[in-house]
Design a protein around this nucleic acid. Structure first.
Length: 818
RNA sequence: GCCCGGAUGGCGGAAUAGGCAGACGCGACGGUCUCAAACACCGUUGACCGAGAGGUCGUGCGAGUUCGAUUCUCGCUCCGGGCACCA
């Protein structure tokens, strides 16, 4: 009886071996070609869940395969260790976020190690490391110097009960605070922003060249939301004020019959006539107290959604007066906060015009069969003086803009939906923003020699929702570095997306003590050749990282020519349960530990690879455990076959060309599957091959042990990135003198052994399979047709009828048509 | 509303360039081994008709192109995701 496979003993042995040998440590000055594989570093929420297992299995597979292929593979790992959950836990339990987080990191690390994931652990980064915070702050100050980080007033969610600002996520759908239940108000408060909009154009256009999933690129394009048009000014009647509007359809401006301002627009007060004042004030007040969600989702009658100011502006195209309205659907945050309304060509303006009895003037002739209301398609211009007759919208637009520019009333502009990144958080557990507010000197950077600004540990976590830093007088009260007078330290901390926006650059040389990024090391490794993570980061994290990489390059903080952080991106599918995302709060997490303790990590890894395409979601269900068992059974079969005294230990020493060819076909097939991330079919191919190997060694006519030896060794090499422990152990037992499996060269198929002498040709009659013939792969069209017509099965099916047509596609198929 | 995906046996999925639908695994059924069980191994397994040979149907629905469509085109249905008064 062969020795049974003991996954726990074997896996522990190899994990220790790899770590002790530094098997996946790479140096920055190696001679092998560099390759950078990175999985999105995790938020440490405790022991790993199946989503982590899947993510890190894909990443580890690639690291191991590229290493065998001769690359020097950079495979770092770190932890996104700042963030709200730790602080909320502190408020609840009194445990300091640092202690809480570090304990969670240890749990997660232990899971990753038991998975057998291979990292250069010397490069580990935590975003709350004081070193990392230091460089975070240096980068921030550099951005501040360049005007890329700035402060401005922004409308934020303010909870009167908690006396603090809330993140959008903390405001419930009904506009109340998730903690106190109070109605959340909008307040203008000073916040920190990154000027990501100044990179909008580049962030958009550079997407085209990235090897990213198309849907992620589409999401980013929509998020940036570029639109071309014109911006122009309308004089307000009896006033020096001018209303600036943005439009993508300047060609329809002759049909502008009113103007609409956002309720927050600065010209609202000056344009409000006294007889309208009460109504306007009530309206503005009401909109102000509506949550964003209410305001943006309201679908009710339009007559409650606007109000007349009593004033008029001049439409520069017609010279006519048009009334100025306010409406809640005009947003202060997009364009200029004011629009020209053209009801004939815009449905929402049309509805508004109907509700308020405003005139509708068509400037584009709709087609004769047009039955709709507003018409936004092409057509001849009418009622538009010097645009009349033009049918091409682009041409009409260009002409309208030229006219505006000639008249100096407006100009061609591009508008983006993208807004600057609000990065300040009124929270403790994040990286402090390194500035001081001085009543005399304004905002002053914390001097370089005083960096990093660290978080004081002796703070009290009170359930006020406000940052404990505000109550820490030692932290708060400082002297101004410029004038020496009393000043206050900034108590806002940075959004945790800041931490994850450049960690991949730091990994290149995390030991560097005089700059955030080593330019030489980053030049060698960047861009990340393969980035792997969840689709949920399609917009924010990936966009911020792309912005940061550019801004750092432009500030000399990273290599100038590295403008994109992630060359290739793979977004793996989610693990769900009954269709919803697995999460701690839902209580449906399935821990990998129980599988490590039973079938072992290799079986679980293999299952995750085998269960379906890596990009698809997988629903964890009743049969899942049995599928994992199936993977474990396969590894058991592999074990018994591959043990030196196992299933195939007694064959003859003759050569077997047929078996050899089968092995080369397997190698070619699995390599193809690896390259296109089709791991499920790669596993299937290996299973199929092992099945046929069992048939081979059990065949009564005997087998070649040389051929089986080559077959098993090849299988071990191909499976090494997927199931690294069991394959390493078997390799060592089979080849005690050889180098270990993970440094063996990756197998490639011998092209000459892929040619076959015979293939199966399908013969159809009227598209229905009637026969299968064995033919030479070089069979000619006429020979194939002849063979097909000679088949007795075909003759029977024809029943005397003569074929009308014979379509031969040698050597795969012949279709006889009657 | 707009933009992207997706739909194949009892289940997860395969079919890489329009050419054998259902690889591989799970489950189910039958068997071998065993006192019995576990493990392992062997066989069957899309539906329907047929004793069998074999036949008919079959990739969400309806059309179309083609000798031939899971694959391409058009029109729907359902499910999932993203954006959503963006001027």
């Amino acid at each position: 009886m062969a020795e049974p496979y003991d996954p726990q003993a074997v896996e522990a042995k190899w994990q220790q071996r790899w770590e002790a040998d530094g098997a996946y440590q790479v140096e920055n000055d190696g001679s092998k070609p560099p390759y950078y594989v990175l999985c999105m570093y995790p938020y440490p929420s405790g022991a790993a869940h199946q989503g982590h297992v899947r993510n890190y299995t894909f990443g580890d597979l690639l690291v191991r395969q590229r290493t065998m292929q001769g690359y020097s593979v950079l495979s770092p790992i770190g932890f996104d260790s700042f963030g709200l959950p730790a602080e909320n836990a502190a408020i609840k339990t009194g445990i300091h976020p640092r202690r809480f987080t570090e304990a969670r990191i240890e749990e997660l690390k232990s899971s990753l190690k038991r998975l057998g994931a291979s990292y250069d652990w010397r490069r580990e980064i935590h975003s709350h490391d004081s070193q990392y915070m230091h460089w975070n702050q240096v980068i921030f100050q550099s951005f501040f110097d360049a005007g890329l980080a700035y402060r401005k007033n922004a409308p934020v969610n303010w909870c009167p009960g908690c006396q603090t600002v809330l993140a959008n996520e903390q405001v419930l759908a009904d506009g109340t605070c998730e903690r106190s239940g109070d109605l959340v108000e909008k307040r203008d408060l000073e916040q920190w922003f990154f000027r990501i909009t100044s990179y909008a154009d580049e962030l958009l256009s550079a997407l085209d060249d990235l090897e990213w999933p198309e849907r992620v690129k589409v999401m980013q394009r929509n998020w940036i939301g570029r639109s071309e048009g014109a911006q122009f000014r309308l004089p307000v009647q009896d006033s020096d004020d001018q209303i600036e509007v943005f439009t993508t359809r300047p060609d329809t401006a002759f049909g502008m019959t009113f103007v609409v301002l956002a309720p927050e627009h600065p010209l609202v007060a000056p344009s409000t006539k006294s007889e309208q004042a009460d109504e306007v004030r009530a309206f503005v007040e009401r909109v102000r107290n509506e949550s964003d969600i209410e305001r943006l989702s309201s679908e009710g009658p339009l007559d409650k959604r606007g109000v007349f100011t009593g004033s008029y502006a001049v439409n520069p195209f017609t010279g006519q007066l048009v009334p100025i309205y306010l409406a809640d659907y005009v947003l202060m945050t997009y364009g200029t906060g004011a629009i020209m309304a053209v009801p004939a060509e815009d449905q929402r303006d049309y509805d508004f015009a109907k509700a308020y009895g405003l005139p509708i003037v068509r400037t584009v002739q709709p087609p004769a069969d047009w039955e709709g209301e507003a018409y936004s398609g092409d057509g001849p211009r009418i009622n538009s003086e010097w645009l009349n007759g033009l049918t091409d919208t682009a041409e009409a637009k260009a002409k309208a803009i030229d006219w505006l520019e000639e008249q100096e009333r407006g100009e061609r502009t591009v508008n983006y939906r993208l807004r600057d990144w609000l990065l300040s958080r009124q929270r403790y557990w994040g990286c402090p923003i390194p500035v001081i507010h001085c009543p005399e000197d304004g905002i002053v950077k914390v001097p370089a020699e005083d960096l990093p600004v660290l978080l004081p540990d002796d703070v009290e976590f009170r359930p006020t929702g406000e940052s404990p830093l505000r109550y820490h007088s030692e932290f708060l009260n400082v002297t101004c570095p410029k004038c020496g007078g009393p000043a206050e330290r900034e108590t806002d901390t940075m959004d945790t997306f800041v931490d994850s926006s450049w960690y991949f650059l730091r990994f290149c040389d995390p030991w560097l003590t005089d700059a955030p990024v080593d330019l030489a090391a980053a030049t060698r490794w960047m861009a990340v050749d393969q980035y792997i993570g969840g689709i949920e980061h399609a917009i924010l994290h990936l966009l911020y990282a792309r912005f940061y990489t550019r801004a750092m390059a432009d500030r000399g903080l990273s290599p100038v020519d590295v403008r994109e952080p992630f060359e290739r991106l793979f977004t793996q599918g989610m693990i769900t349960m009954d269709g919803s995302k697995m999460s701690k709060s839902r209580g449906n997490l399935i821990s990998p530990e129980k599988y490590f303790d039973s079938v072992g990590a290799d079986s679980l890894r293999l299952f995750h690879l085998f269960v379906g395409p890596p990009g698809d979601d997988f629903d964890w269900g009743d049969q899942t455990d049995q599928m994992i068992e199936g993977c474990s059974r396969f590894l058991g079969r592999l074990w018994r076959m591959a043990l030196p005294d196992g299933a195939a230990s007694a064959g003859s020493s003759e050569v077997d060309d047929e078996m050899d060819k089968e092995v080369h076909r397997l190698i070619a097939r699995v390599n193809g599957d690896y390259e296109r991330w089709s791991y499920n079919t790669a596993v299937a191919a290996c299973m199929e091959f092992l099945n046929s190997l069992y048939k081979y060694v059990q065949s009564p006519s005997g087998y070649s042990s040389t051929a089986v030896g080559f077959a098993v060794d090849s299988l071990l090499l191909l499976l090494a990135p997927m199931a690294p422990h069991i394959t390493a152990e078997l390799w060592e037992r089979r080849h005690p003198e050889a180098e270990p499996l993970h440094v063996q060269p990756w197998p490639t198929a011998d092209e000459s052994k892929l040619v076959v002498d015979e293939v199966t040709m399908v013969v159809q009659v009227n598209g229905k399979v009637k026969d299968r013939l064995s033919v030479s792969p070089a069979v000619t069209e006429s020979a194939a047709a002849e063979l097909a017509l000679a088949s007795t099965r075909v003759v029977e099916a024809l029943a005397g009828r003569s074929p009308r047509n014979v379509i031969a596609r040698p050597p795969r198929l012949v279709n006889v048509v009657v």
